[in-house]
Nucleic acid binder design. Structure first.
Lengths: 298, 298
DNA sequence: AGCAATTCATGAACATAAATAATGATTTTA
DNA sequence: TAAAATCATTATTTATGTTCATGAATTGCT
């Protein structure tokens, strides 16, 4: 019943003191304002002003409405403003899901320029999914999924953004450290450290050991990349990681990368997003930065 | 920009889950809703929903607007409700100004049924005026002026609501107590107690003493009716009050009324109100009660 | 699968509401 | 008292919102 315009009229008439001035301030003719007021008062069944001679005097109902106007209008104006920020992309949250443990290091390098480009936009990174990253994408729990293993789906697009080679990490003093590459058979007496995820999601199994019908001597899991590399450095076992990540750590730790097989295991980090959000500015620039920003970094 | 209807649309679509259902709830056709939404999104420059297949998913901007809708709409609805109360007269404040000290006792008897008739309406009684009661009425500081002395003015109407006789009050043992009436000359050796107002506003001077070119022996002022009567009872002097008020007090105090002159001084309590507020329900019923309610009381 | 039902989008016609222009009555100012 | 200003009112134009008719896409059902 009471509309935003009504509140504005109340406020402006109090501010300006006259109908004519208020009409001007509202970009209306005096006539239009007069009509609108008349209609409003008729709807309410009560006058909002008493008109004595030339100047208006608020009735009690009018005074009440005027107080409410001065309270509510700023709130509505703020809504407009925030909405404009959303529209211009100045505001929002980009929710990123991670399905690949070591990618976190890489992600940080993409997030950094993104945050600079969109100072008002937050980035929210999630790593745990109740029904997997793809389901999280479907459910709108996340907007972008970072994964090395894209899946073909109708409503989802995966884009490869960063190629890398998955390598074996061994201690600098490890017998395999000097080899150009390792064979699956050479891992059958090794202790293999991996993240605690199912074997189907580990390339070392899917693309290297299982095709050769091999198994590692022992398989242990650790949550944390640093911890895994500690173990490797201490010659308690071997692990697999992206080569660029190993090289980074190798500067401060006694570890070495060794190629998996003669040709190596080559992968891509993919970014998945809903097709419906393909036009989203934030998502577009994020993908852009992911592709470009790391072109040299590795 | 954001209008109340927009907020309602956001809320209803969330509640109902579909455009068609929301349209029904808003008493619109599905088509009208669709058009309105399209226009709103065009104005904002950003979508509020992403449409995947059949069901709608709020964007971040949409989710924000939806939260604001659920916050602001109840407030707007409350405004409607209160405004309806004002219109029906269920709510408001009747501000009464008093220009006659003893009238307070009388006023209470009128206010009582008024408060019962309008349970939501407050009564505010003011007795002090910076520029007099009439100016307070003009300035909208009060809505009704209670006075024994009406003044002819264009924009103000005075209605006599209660006739009374102004009488002299003396102690039961006072020499004048047994007389049928007193003459002005008989007061020239008396101490006269009055309220602390200028002599022009005191009937005892204007209508009784001055026309006979008399003066009281002494003139003292007191704020309070009870205090004046204490003085009279203690035979420290005499005073003038409405007869009905004296009779009331005479039941518990040793005092007596005596007529002023052979014919007595006859007055009316008048109620003054702005002509502009003549239609006001509260004012109308107050005047009505003032006339009727006290018809017997005195 | 295929058919029916449902949902949303769209363009054109229509109805309603809102804004304006023109004018008049009233009030204030000079 | 004349001139200026304010608000109300009527008729007219303009704009906005609504409906109708229809189509495309999706979902449910058998």
């Amino acid at each position: 019943m009471i509309d935003r315009m009504h509140l504005r009229i109340l406020r402006e008439i109090e501010r300006q003191g006259s109908l004519t001035a208020a009409a001007k301030a509202l970009n209306l003719t005096q006539s239009a304002l007069s009509h609108t007021i008349k209609k409003l008062e008729a709807q309410l069944g009560a006058p909002l002003w008493t008109k004595e001679g030339r100047n208006l005097q608020l009735t009690q109902a009018g005074a009440y409405l005027q107080r409410e106007a001065s309270r509510l209008l700023p709130q509505l104006e703020r809504v407009d403003q925030v909405l404009r920020q959303y529209a211009s992309g100045d505001k929002g949250t980009l929710r990123i899901g991670m399905e690949c443990h070591p990618c976190y290091q890489w992600l940080l390098k993409v997030v950094e320029p993104f945050l600079q480009r969109w100072p008002g936009v937050d980035v929210d990174v999630k790593q745990q999914f109740q029904f997997g990253g793809l389901a999280a994408l479907f459910n709108h729990d996340i907007d972008i999924l970072v994964t090395p293993d894209p899946v073909l789906r109708d409503a989802i697009t995966f884009e490869p953004v960063f190629p890398y080679e998955q390598v074996l990490v061994v201690s600098r003093h490890h017998p395999l450290a000097e080899q150009a590459f390792v064979s699956p058979q050479q891992l059958t007496d090794q202790t293999l450290y991996t993240y605690p995820v199912s074997a189907e999601r580990l390339d070392i199994f899917q693309q290297f050991l299982l095709p050769a019908h091999c198994h590692p001597g022992r398989h242990k899991t650790l949550e944390d990349t640093d911890m895994i590399l500690q173990m490797v450095a201490a010659e308690r076992g071997v692990a697999t990681l992206p080569q660029w990540l190993v090289e980074e750590y190798a500067q401060t730790m006694p570890i070495r990368p060794v190629r998996l097989g003669k040709d190596g295991v080559h992968k891509h980090i993919h970014l998945g997003f809903r097709n419906a959000s393909a036009d989203d500015q934030h998502i577009r620039t994020f993908i852009e930065f992911a592709r470009a920003g790391m072109g040299d970094g590795a």
